[in-house]
Amino acid sequence: MEVRELLAQTHKLPNVPDIVRELIQQLNNPNADYGDIADKVIKDQTLSLKILRLVNSAHFGLSRKVSSINEAVVMLGMTQLKTMVIASGIAGSVKEVDGLDLKKFWSDSFRVAALAKWYAEKSTGVDPDTAFTVGLIHNIGRLLLHITKPKLAEAIQTLVDQSDCSRSDAEMERLNFTTPEAGQALLALWQFPENLGDTVRYHRQPLSAEAPSPLCATLHIACYINAAIGKQQPLEEVIAMFPSAEAELAGLPANIAAVSEEAMQIESGLDGLI
């Protein structure tokens, strides 16, 4: 089987809003006109309502109710609004998928995104907004597989659950490629920046990439912590097994493993977008 067989089913592929594509294209553009972005959000009633509902939730604890996107920008800042637009647009691109708990899928993706951003803020060379975005879409290939080949996706999950093999090995056995590779191909189809696709492809083994990147290493660490949270691993074990080589590549402080407990308390605050 080849990745193109998944991408050929265009009628099943997620539909990412144009405003989200535009924001992602401008992640590293210091001259981006985010005022224009806010205007476009205002015109998208569904997106506006979801964002305003989240802004007014207890998570943000604002002193008064926010009734417009412009007010949200003033209260939270454009960076936070940009995060919400990307998260809402990506998560809202798919409504229902056979064999996949979308609420859990996006909740996990949101937390990986928040963790990636948290670690990026402590690194010497990773942009936090880019780290958040790639964390959000890091598992998009698995979503693509469930949308286009649900029975194969279920078979792979069964193989992982009933054996000692890794997900990558199970995917190679059943597909002859991995879902991160499929994710890279989908992001290329969407014309997302190339570095995002490369990061998604190699995030499971960032040191194996032809050109290992700090962004990819940061995402790998975020996924490691998210998995540890899911398994309820003891803190001592999380620290002992912390991916130190990836931490060095990411440009993180030498004592970064020691603050794992702080990282494991992070919540995305975005589940209200699901």
Rank of each mutant, 00 (worst) to 15 (best):
Q265F: 13
C216E: 07
A32P: 10
Q232P: 06
A222D: 03
E71T: 11
G135M: 04
A217S: 15
I140H: 07
I137G: 00
A113E: 07
R53T: 09
D271S: 15
I274L: 15
L219K: 09
L136T: 01
A182Q: 04
V73S: 05
L7C: 10
S88E: 12
E181V: 01
T218H: 14
G35Y: 12
E246C: 14
I266A: 12
K117Y: 07
I19Q: 07
G269A: 00
T133W: 02
R204I: 14
A8F: 09
T124Q: 11
L47S: 06
M84T: 03
R142Y: 03
V126T: 13
L49F: 04
D33A: 12
K82V: 11
R4F: 08
R167Y: 04
I266C: 12
G99M: 11
G197H: 02
I256D: 08
L115P: 10
R64K: 14
P128T: 11
A240F: 05
C165G: 00
W106A: 06
L207P: 02
F105K: 00
L7K: 09
I37G: 00
G251C: 11
S109Q: 15
D101V: 04
H11G: 01
S244E: 14
T179G: 00
L115F: 01
Y119I: 12
V41W: 02
N255S: 13
V16C: 03
V74E: 13
L52C: 08
A240V: 09
G61V: 01
N31L: 15
V41I: 07
T178Q: 06
G230Q: 14
A170P: 02
A116V: 12
V74S: 09
R142G: 02
S244Q: 14
A257F: 07
P128D: 05
V73N: 02
S67P: 01
T199P: 02
P214L: 14
C165N: 05
I225V: 15
L186K: 05
A227R: 15
E154G: 07
N31Q: 15
V112E: 14
V238Q: 06
E236V: 08
Q205Y: 10
Q157T: 13
I256H: 09
L187Q: 01
H138W: 05
I147N: 05
H146F: 15
T10K: 14
L249Q: 12
A114K: 10
E267R: 13
F105R: 00
H203G: 11
L175F: 00
Q9C: 07
Q157G: 10
R4C: 02
H138L: 08
A227C: 10
A155L: 13
F242H: 07
N226H: 09
V73F: 01
